[in-house]
Design a protein around this nucleic acid. Structure first.
Lengths: 189, 189
DNA sequence: TTATACGGTAGCGAGTCGATACTATATAGA
DNA sequence: TCTATATAGTATCGACTCGCTACCGTATAA
């Protein structure tokens, strides 16, 4: 029990150190990598500074700074939303996508995962998913799950998908991305 | 496979955000909590700035700064080593220990772990241990394991324990602490 | 004895990050 | 419709991180 907390904390420290190393070799800060990773995986409702702030647990001021750096480095671009003049949409540029790819290839954690046996991988995936759900529920924070695990995700009669919140149709690709509006099915305590 | 990397990265981000929140409420930076946690768990060979740097994956300059802050806040104390005039020994003071206790009580990750079923806990502990070993081996970094899992850990004929590296006797308490010199048993590729 | 390695500190610069104050746009209520 | 109030984002400040280079003492090996 207490031992598990220590393992998780250790894993977090190792992941953080790795992030620092990878970011440093690209002339960036660790948090910049986190932002790029998020933008690579989020859906079209969730590519805003506000969503990033919620995902990373930081304030909008901090996100604003980081976004400024990433834009200056031509890793992302800004575009103001047509419908709501207050919101800014962020897009990962090719340079950013390439950087991310290079970074993940150098990840020793990634390599460690690949080295594991298939059954170990499955066990890990299940344990971590369960743990994250619990933590986020206790935290009363957003769950930031993938679209097709959301309680608003709907399968239509014609075989297509739809977001029950926005009523928009979803492609298969859409359904595998992270969404700010994501909510888990109700869980028993 | 790739999904697992994302889960780990997400867990790291959540743990980091929590650390920031907990540290902030005590007027500290996240890394200060990491240092205190390390000092609470390391053995008497490993309570130096150099070991902290290796554990956290940061440079000695950075550690020196953090240690200065923690000393100013009366959370730890410094003491120069009697044998080697270059090294500084760090000790966690009562105020630091109390802070750490308070912080862990507020951890939602800790709460999430406690909420899990016993078999889930066991699975998680095993998966994480295996993963960390792999990652650290690939990293060619120190393992920072607990003393009694080290290849130098020796059981004496009289039932006592001994460190095969320093030849010093070890108490049961000693054998459960983190050591910089820790090395895993040789692992097959 | 001298060179080299090692543990730690000092100071610099870019950046984080919480906090506060601010602008501009949306939206709800009278 | 006008007016609060909420929301998205920016700007600036101060303490601190963190890599870097330069540096000082102490150990240790040649």
């Amino acid at each position: 029990m207490d031992e598990i907390l220590q393992l998780i904390q250790r894993l977090a420290v190792v992941a953080q150190a790795e992030n620092r190393r990878l970011a440093g070799s690209a002339g960036l800060q660790p948090v910049h990598i986190d932002v790029l990773r998020y933008l690579a995986r989020c859906n079209r409702y969730s590519n805003t500074p506000a969503a990033i702030g919620q995902f990373l647990g930081s304030t909008k001021g901090t996100v604003s700074q980081s976004v400024k750096v990433l834009e200056r480095e031509r890793l992302i671009s800004k575009l103001s939303d047509a419908k709501d003049g207050r919101v800014i949409r962020l897009r990962l540029l090719k340079k950013g996508r390439d950087l991310l790819k290079r970074v993940d290839e150098e990840s020793t954690i990634q390599a460690a995962v690949e080295n594991a046996r298939a059954d170990e991988q499955l066990a890990l995936a299940n344990s971590l998913t369960a743990l994250l759900r619990r933590a986020q529920r206790l935290n009363e924070s957003k769950t930031f799950g993938v679209c097709n695990t959301c309680r608003f995700f709907t399968r239509l009669a014609d075989g297509g998908f739809q977001c029950g919140l926005t009523k928009e149709p979803l492609t298969v690709g859409d359904s595998m991305q992270i969404c700010v509006e994501h909510e888990n099915e109700a869980l028993k305590a």
